[in-house]
Design a binder for these strands. Structure first.
Length: 686
DNA sequence: TCACAGTAACTC
DNA sequence: AGTTACTGTGAG
């Protein structure tokens, strides 16, 4: 027989009368008897804190940050105890906590961060906490603390990896001195493509030297391991007390919770992990680092869809700590942080860039014109010749865009993505031969003209890539061909030997090689710069640079060939190795066109009526509502979902999020029905 | 008079 | 969301 909840009949307004039996069993804590709890429930209108009584027997265990079990609305629910108080604001009687589960998992700092993230994304605190705290693993929690092994030596924060960068040495000094600088860092290629990891590790070690903890977030487990290896060589080994810890989901729930607890208990000084670790409870946080902030893996796919960049920015502001955003490319979001003065630039001078990078050539249709029909071939003769030559001195990397991109329309002359003349949304073709229409506002694009070159002809970009490893292998008989990628037979390769071979990889799966590739060939540039997302051009450049960074410098004969007629601007940016320039131009253009991040946007997708009700209640200074328009999908149903876009100036973003959250609360209280998806800062504004 | 469905309101 | 309290209608 389970415990029966004692019900006490009370008259409204009358003092609460406890039966002696109840008082005996459930004496209340003498001090701070009120616990403020975030109850883990779905509905948006329940996104507030609820007060409970702390029974005397739970007084010790009921510390801020613990998980609790409570009675809520006639049923049992989980929750987090956020704080203890002497009194409650609640007029009615309070229910006692049922149980305290385990040790504290939420620090005050992370609880504040989670609230700020929920507010930014018009989501609920419970939803964010579900992302921030990994599932409990009782066995792991019961494990003994690591027997205090030999304490690691003080970390060495050799700044050598930062000397090539203007402002790099100063950044490190600032960190060691306990300061909180904020920087956008454009990384240079280096031997084995890993200098960047040494730089990240040195920044983290500098922070540890100042007596503070550090948090590093990378897109995938491979990058996490590279950073951990670099940290180990600086005297911050993974797994050792006072060292680093690997916080990823790929080694199972037990390992993840063990790492989480190591951070929470202060056993680890540096946490390195993937996107969810942006919420890791690092003690005395002094620095947050985000590597490759443009990688789509940094976008959380679960509601409220927070992006690691935004989480870490909020965290740096709330915790007053240092922030470092690094990558080979530069996102428009990072560019905006520079232009608003939020962060300072850390980048190498032009001369250093030239010294470190490979020779880059773009084999465009114009350059290949003299080849005639052969220009259409996917591996044109100059690329073939360059590969043959490079294979004499080392491995050659071939990057192939992942197939399966959405068809899109682009300018036939300059290949820039085609945009709506009215609202700057992307143009798409639903039926073959039809007039393209805007994916945002639905207008037909008759009489279209390219904003970049004035061209008047549209073309549909060919989709996907059928090029296979076998195809390339046939072109180079006798040469070893390795494939790396999630679709490749052998999966993703981490490293390849420093011997002549062809390595075919999809973006993000490029293996490193000790002395660098002799050459890289980036295929199907037109496919890489196609797609409907806003960030297609910086994204393409980011993927190209990531591959090009693995190639030896030009002084050692390294060369990069871009093949297949991509959009002009990212092509030029690659040839000049100028990611900052592309980001600058892209941000300026987005400001002119009122596109994010120069404006704030939110997307509401779902059944027409539900979308209209929610959007109809939203108000914010200067709010513009685009649509709703039917969302185009493969399954064209009878009654398709629609999407509306809400747009305001950046300084009205908090007001928009607040109003949107309020409208969603009304929706859930009224049970307006339908399944709705609300996204603030949608990563793919089609 | 009791039963039960539809609905309105609340959740510490 | 899930639960409980409260209307109103109908058969005995």
């Amino acid at each position: 027989m389970g415990p029966v909840e004692p019900t006490q009949p009370t008259l409204a307004g009358m003092p609460r009368v406890r039966s002696p039996r109840l008082a005996k069993e459930r004496a209340v804590a003498a001090e701070l008897p009120v616990a403020r709890v975030c109850v883990d429930v779905q509905p948006a209108h329940l996104d507030r804190l609820f007060d409970y009584l702390v029974p005397a027997d739970l007084d010790d265990a009921a510390r801020p940050g613990v998980r609790v079990k409570v009675r809520f609305g006639g049923q049992d629910a989980d929750g987090y105890l956020l704080s203890r108080h002497e009194q409650s604001e609640h007029a009615g009687t309070l229910t006692p906590l049922r149980r305290v589960v385990g040790e504290p998992v939420l620090t005050a700092e992370v609880a504040r961060l989670a609230r700020a993230v929920a507010d930014h994304y018009a989501g609920t605190l419970a939803d964010v906490l579900r992302l921030a705290v990994p599932p409990r693993h009782a066995r792991v929690e019961a494990e003994q603390h690591e027997p205090a092994g030999p304490a690691p030596d003080a970390p060495r924060a050799v700044a050598t990896a930062w000397t090539p960068y203007r402002g790099g040495a100063a950044l490190l000094q600032h960190l060691v001195a306990g300061g909180s600088p904020r920087a956008v860092w454009t990384a240079l290629p280096g031997p084995a493509g890993e200098r960047w990891a040494d730089a990240v590790a040195q920044a983290a070690a500098a922070c540890v030297l100042s007596g503070r903890g550090a948090l590093v977030v990378a897109p995938d487990a491979r990058d996490v391991d590279r950073i951990l290896a670099a940290l180990a060589s600086l005297g911050l080994p993974a797994g050792a007390p006072g060292g680093a810890v690997r916080l990823t989901a790929d080694e199972g729930p037990a390992a993840r919770y063990r790492a989480f607890l190591a951070a929470r208990r202060g056993v680890a000084r540096v946490v390195v992990g993937t996107r969810a670790s942006a919420f890791a409870p690092v003690a005395d946080l002094g620095l947050v680092v985000l590597w490759e902030d443009g990688d789509p893996l940094h976008a959380e796919p679960r509601a409220p869809y927070p992006h690691a960049r935004q989480v870490l920015m909020l965290r740096a502001e709330l915790a007053g700590c240092a922030a470092l955003l690094g990558g080979f490319g530069r996102t428009v979001e990072a560019q905006r942080l520079l232009e608003t003065g939020w962060a300072r630039q850390v980048a190498a001078d032009r001369a250093v860039v030239r010294e470190r990078t490979a020779r880059v050539r773009a084999l465009t249709a114009v350059e290949l014109a003299r080849e005639g029909a052969a220009a259409a071939a996917r591996l044109p003769a100059p690329a073939f010749a360059a590969m043959r030559q490079a294979l004499a001195t080392g491995p050659v990397l071939v990057q192939v865009p992942r197939a399966g991109y959405v068809p899109v329309t682009a300018c036939a002359r300059c290949h820039a993505p085609a945009r709506c003349a009215t609202c700057t949304g992307p143009l798409g073709l639903d039926a073959a031969g039809a007039v393209p229409s805007c994916r945002w506002c639905g207008r037909l694009a008759t009489d279209w003209a390219c904003r970049q070159c004035g061209g008047r002809a549209l073309r549909s970009v060919r989709v996907g890539s059928g090029r296979t490893t076998e195809e390339i292998g046939r072109a180079f008989p006798g040469i070893t061909v390795r494939a790396s990628g999630s679709h490749a037979g052998g999966g993703v390769l981490d490293t390849v030997p420093d011997r002549p071979a062809i390595v075919v990889a999809t973006p993000g799966a490029e293996p490193v090689t000790e002395h660098g590739y002799a050459a890289a060939v980036l295929l199907d540039a037109a496919v890489a710069t196609s797609g409907e997302g806003l960030a297609v051009e910086p994204d393409a450049l980011r993927r190209w640079l990531a591959a090009a960074a693995l190639v030896r410098p030009a002084t050692d004969g390294g060369q990069v060939l871009l093949v297949g007629d991509g959009a002009a601007r990212p092509t030029q940016a690659l040839v000049r190795w100028d990611p900052a320039g592309l980001a600058e131009r892209e941000l300026a253009e987005r400001a002119a066109l009122r596109l994010p991040p120069a404006v704030a946007m939110a997307a509401v997708t779902g059944p027409r009526q539900a979308v209209e009700l929610v959007v109809g209640r939203v108000s914010a200074p200067g709010l513009a509502v685009l649509g709703p328009v039917p969302v185009t999908g493969p399954g064209a149903t009878l009654d398709p979902d629609v999407r509306a876009l809400l747009r305001v100036a950046p300084d009205a973003a908090p007001a928009l999020a607040r109003s949107l959250a309020q409208s969603l609360a009304v929706r859930s209280a009224r049970r307006e029905g339908g399944t709705l998806r609300t996204q603030v800062d949608p990563p793919e504004v089609l």
